[in-house]
Amino acid sequence: MLHIKCPHCGMRSQNEFAYGGDASVKRPELNKEISDLEWDNFVYLRKSLRGKHLELWHHISGCRQWFKVQRDTSTHEIFKTVKANEDI
């Protein structure tokens, strides 16, 4: 079980959190004309990389805040966690 530092609450066990996917994905702006390919990439395509991954987690059994985690997908090492509006 991972030990994750919520930027709002501090160190908590993984079972308080829900994983939220790749944090580098940007939703296309509303009402913006984009190609099928761009939309397809946004909806379906995710990198399944080995190594440092920037991802979202949701502190569902805590403060209910979404935040960013930089984690190594092969070792589970967590390098940094920051609030949703902060950059790593």
Binding site: R27, H58, I60, R64, W66, A84, N85
Partner: peptide, 17 residues
């Protein structure tokens, strides 16, 4: 119920803050 709350929180906190 629980999923929708998370869904709304996601859009409010991450996509359209």
């Amino acid at each position: 119920a629980a999923n929708i709350l998370s869904h709304l929180e996601y859009y409010l906190q991450i996509v359209w803050p």
